[in-house]
Simulated scan of single mutants.
Amino acid sequence: MSSRRNPFREIERMFDRMSRQFEEMPWGFEGEAGGQALWGRSPSLDLAEHDEEYVVTVDLPGFERDDISVQLSGRTLQISADRSEGSEQREENYLQQERSQRSVSRSITIPDRVDEEGVSATYNNGVLTVTLPKSEPSDRGRQIDVE
């Protein structure tokens, strides 16, 4: 019996290696339904309840304050961040351009109504903190400035 290499086994190994490499990439290929991130991973989020308020903490490393949008409508808090980067490098007759874009989005339903006028958001060292004081019901939505 001759010992031949199985080409299908080699292809299977190649796909396994490629799959592991894609899983290790920081930007991933995961798309989630329901307003979650379409490209990249959904940002990590914590929701804490205190006596007088709810506090939402979201990890958004690599974004600038102006890249982040926070909106509250009823009990739904929508957080999104969008960043584009570009660089140019000239070498003799060549022009090289490399660009990347990263967008993430996350929605969360707050357990009870909050005082929309008292909501605040801060962004420090890649962490967004949204403070939502508890309140009586309101039908208006509100755009929240990130400080």
Rank of each mutant, 00 (worst) to 15 (best):
E24L: 11
F22D: 09
M1Y: 11
T129F: 06
D51H: 08
G126W: 07
P111V: 02
A48G: 03
E147A: 00
F29D: 08
S44C: 09
R75C: 05
R83T: 06
P26D: 10
S135G: 14
R142K: 15
S73V: 05
M14D: 14
E147V: 00
I79V: 06
D66E: 10
R90K: 09
G28Q: 09
D51F: 05
R20D: 10
R90H: 13
V119P: 01
N93P: 01
D67Q: 05
E52W: 05
T122L: 00
M1T: 13
Q78H: 14
T57W: 04
R20L: 12
I110P: 00
V127D: 03
I79A: 01
F63K: 15
G141Y: 06
S3H: 10
N125A: 12
I144F: 01
R113Q: 14
E136V: 07
T122P: 03
T122M: 05
T109W: 01
W27P: 03
V58Y: 04
E85V: 12
Q101G: 12
R5D: 13
S44T: 07
E85T: 14
P43F: 03
R142V: 12
D46R: 07
D67N: 09
S105W: 06
R102H: 08
L128T: 06
V56T: 13
F63I: 08
Q97Y: 07
G28D: 15
R20Q: 12
D112G: 07
H50P: 01
M18W: 14
D112K: 14
A121N: 05
F8G: 12
N124F: 07
S44R: 12
E147H: 00
A33V: 04
R17W: 06
S80R: 08
M1K: 15
G28P: 04
Q78V: 05
R140H: 15
G141P: 10
R99C: 04
M1I: 05
G141D: 15
D66A: 10
D112T: 14
V56F: 01
G40W: 07
V70I: 10
Y123G: 07
M18D: 14
R99D: 10
W39N: 09
R13Q: 11
P133M: 08
P7N: 09
Q89W: 08
Y123K: 08
S138D: 12
H50E: 15
N93R: 13
S107L: 07
I68D: 03
D82P: 00
F22G: 11
S87T: 15
E49N: 07
E92S: 11
A81G: 12
V127H: 08
G28Y: 04
